[in-house]
Write a protein that binds this DNA or RNA. Structure first.
Lengths: 118, 118
DNA sequence: ATTATATTCAACACTATGGTTGAATATAGA
DNA sequence: TCTATATTCAACCATAGTGTTGAATATAAT
């Protein structure tokens, strides 16, 4: 009884958390491909890859263009914006703290030097 | 029989994919807190939050400082770098494609105008 | 028409995840 | 010492995720 709505961000991050799926995206940035082509390099079954593709599609990271019996897949980076924004916000926060720490240490050292000079 | 090694990136992204855990991180950027304090605003049990904290700790996103019976938790943004880098790479790739498309459309329109002018 | 190819669907198994409750442990305070 | 507080540990449950195989479907090619 969890009652919680999967947001787009949830789906995007969950999709990206799997290394197979990230590899699929990497493949698709080199050019559109059919399911069989995408699946070829992987050691798992075609069906397993097909499932991963559905997850990526569900997250909006992959588009599918059905032409006859071939399904042409392409990368869609649009959902990355939200994920990137979220992470970068916290990353910047963190780096800001590190900078503040560095400043503090530097100033503190300067103070010590001054004290020594007296 | 999957035989695949969880990379740090996998753990980071998986940790971030849960909205409760992202909320916990948000809370911790406002200041270090004990487990009880972190858990207070959530509608789930303390134990559930404790588990989420362990996931975040396992991903290196949360540090724990045990002082007596209190566990002080703090945000650690270091693992975000790899995640941010990965996503930004693909985001830039994607935006580059959009730019190229925009250029193409603009030039194409210019061509049409020129043709019309003849 | 028959056969081959591309892909999904369905059923199953196993593991992981996210939650619960109750007990255990460790520290703090009276 | 006794009691209250902070936290984890352990067992359990339900659901979701990732993989498998075999059958179904749709299109293409001979």
């Amino acid at each position: 009884m969890v009652e919680y709505r999967d947001t787009e961000l949830d789906r995007t991050l969950a999709a990206l958390a799997d290394p197979t799926r990230r590899a699929i995206l990497a493949r698709l940035t080199e050019g559109d491909a059919r399911v069989t082509e995408v699946a070829a390099p992987f050691e798992m079954s075609l069906n397993a890859v097909s499932k991963h593709l559905k997850v990526l599609e569900g997250a909006g990271l992959v588009r599918r263009d059905v032409r006859g019996r071939d399904h042409w897949l392409s990368f869609d980076g649009a959902p990355l914006t939200a994920a990137s924004d979220w992470i970068d916000h916290y990353r910047r926060f963190w780096e800001g703290r590190l900078d503040a720490l560095a400043r503090f240490l530097r100033d503190n050292k300067a103070n010590k030097e001054r004290r020594k000079d007296k």
